[in-house]
C-alpha cells in the first residue's frame, strides 16, 4: 500500500482525493436537495420522507459516519494543499494580477470555510437541535412523526436565519462552480472537446442546486410556505 500512499500524497494525488471526496459530497448535496424540495409538496410528504430516513436506524449512522469521514478528508486535504501552496510562493509579489482565473477558482479556501461554518451551524440547527430554540426540535405532527416541516418553516421565517442560509448557499455555489469543472480536470477527464461543456455543466448544476436551496428560505420569508395549523406557534402559544 506504500505505493498508493506515496502516490496520493503527491500534489496530483492530493487533487485526486479532493476531486473524489468533492464528487461524493456533491452527490450528497444533490440528494439532500432532492429530499428538502419535498417541502413544497407539503408537511405530510416531507415528514414522511424524514421518517423513512430515521427508520433506517443503524444504517443511518453508517451513512453519517461515512459522510463525516469524506468531509474530514476533503477539508483536511484542502488544508494540506493550501499550506503547501502558500509555502511554494515564498516571498509574495508586490503586485500580482489575475489574468484569466475566476474569482471562484482563487477563493476556494474562503468559500470552503464559509461552507464549513454553515455545515456546523446547520447540523446544530436541524440534526442536533441544540443552540437555537431547542424546543422546535421536539415538535411532532398529528401522526406523531417528527415535525421537520414546521421546524424548517419556523426557522426560515426568521430573517437572520434565512439570510444566513442564503449567503451560505451563495458561498457553496461559488465553491461548486469551480469545484465541479475542476473535478473533471483533476481526474483527467477533461478533453479539449468537452472543456466548454464541463465548464457549463459545472455552472448549470451549481445554479440548480443553489436556486433550489435558496428557494426554501425565500419561500418562507414571502409566506409561500407556512406553518401547519397543528403547530403550537400558529395558535399564538409559546
Amino acid at each position: 500500500m506504500n505505493w498508493l500512499l506515496r502516490g496520493l500524497r503527491s500534489s496530483v494525488g492530493l487533487k485526486f482525493v479532493m476531486a473524489v471526496t468533492g464528487l461524493l459530497l456533491f452527490g450528497f448535496v444533490l440528494a439532500h436537495l432532492a429530499g428538502n424540495l419535498q417541502i413544497f409538496a407539503g408537511a405530510d410528504q416531507l415528514n414522511g420522507y424524514a421518517k423513512s430516513l430515521q427508520d433506517l436506524g443503524p444504517l443511518l449512522w453508517v451513512a453519517r459516519g461515512g459522510l463525516l469521514a469524506i468531509f474530514v478528508l476533503h477539508v483536511g486535504t484542502g488544508v494540506m494543499l493550501a499550506r503547501r501552496n502558500r509555502a511554494a510562493r515564498g516571498t509574495p509579489y508586490a503586485v500580482q494580477k489575475a489574468i484569466d482565473s475566476t474569482h471562484a477558482s482563487r477563493a476556494m479556501v474562503s468559500t470552503g470555510v464559509v461552507v464549513m461554518i454553515f455545515v456546523v451551524y446547520h447540523l446544530m440547527h436541524f440534526t442536533l437541535g441544540v443552540g437555537i430554540r431547542p424546543e422546535f426540535h421536539d415538535w411532532t405532527d398529528p401522526q406523531g412523526r417528527h415535525d421537520v416541516y414546521s421546524m424548517v418553516v419556523a426557522g426560515f421565517q426568521q430573517l437572520p436565519i434565512a439570510l444566513f442560509y442564503i449567503v451560505s448557499m451563495l458561498g457553496l455555489g461559488v465553491h461548486l462552480s469551480h469545484g465541479l469543472a475542476s473535478m473533471f480536470q483533476s481526474l483527467g477527464w477533461n478533453q479539449p472537446k468537452y472543456r466548454s461543456f464541463t465548464r457549463l455543466l459545472g455552472i448549470g448544476i451549481t445554479a440548480v442546486i443553489i436556486l433550489g436551496n435558496i428557494s426554501m428560505p425565500v419561500a418562507a420569508q414571502f409566506g409561500l410556505i407556512e406553518l401547519p395549523e397543528w403547530n403550537p406557534l400558529v395558535n399564538g402559544g409559546n
Binding site: 500534489s11 496530483v12 492530493l14 487533487k15 494543499l81 503547501r84 501552496n85 509555502a87 511554494a88 510562493r89 489575475a98 489574468i99 484569466d100 482565473s101 475566476t102 477558482s105 482563487r106 476556494m108 469551480h178 469543472a181 475542476s182 480536470q185 483533476s186
Partner: peptide, 15 residues
C-alpha cells in the same frame, strides 16, 4: 523541488 499544487485556476495558460 517545492513547487505548489495545481488548483485549476488556469492563469498559467493565460500567462
Amino acid at each position: 523541488e517545492g513547487f505548489g499544487a495545481c488548483t485549476n485556476t488556469y492563469d498559467c495558460e493565460a500567462a
